[in-house]
Amino acid sequence: MRSMSKDTFNISKKMVIPNDTSYLSKVRKFIKEVVALSPMEATEHMRVVLAVDEALSNVIEHAYKCSSPDNTIELKFVGTDKYLSAVITDQGNSFNPSSIPDVNMEDHVRNRRKGGLGIFMIRQIMDEIEYKFKDGEYNVLRLVKYYEERN
């Protein structure tokens, strides 16, 4: 559903994907298409694709712990004339991104750590990150990117 008038932009797009990393490339195509519909600066498009991809990868690895592909993840975009938000919902283990500390890259290299970079990446890109464990059953992660820099 998309409607646009002189001063407003509204968009709502949804995709449900299996809990399987093999679907990530298809989802990135979907994200790219949605982002391209928004008034966001082209230079930000790839970054937003990356941030949402990181969030979905985290759900598969941490919330669902790479379990059955029968588990699903819902990705819903809502766009207004000021921002684009991605809401990611899953029924895996509770996984609060705010509990993850920032990364010291030199320590990472020294300790030969390969993972644990996704949340750091999302924080670098998105303007708001909200997490809720809804009804004791659903992880709901909302990532927001404003079109103009906010002070």
Binding site: R28, S57, H108, K114, L117, F120, M121
Partner: peptide
């Protein structure tokens, strides 16, 4: 395209 998982391969192995 590279995500943090891909970059992590280099980070974890350079040492």
């Amino acid at each position: 395209y590279i995500s943090s998982a891909g970059a992590g391969v280099f980070i974890g192995n350079i040492g």
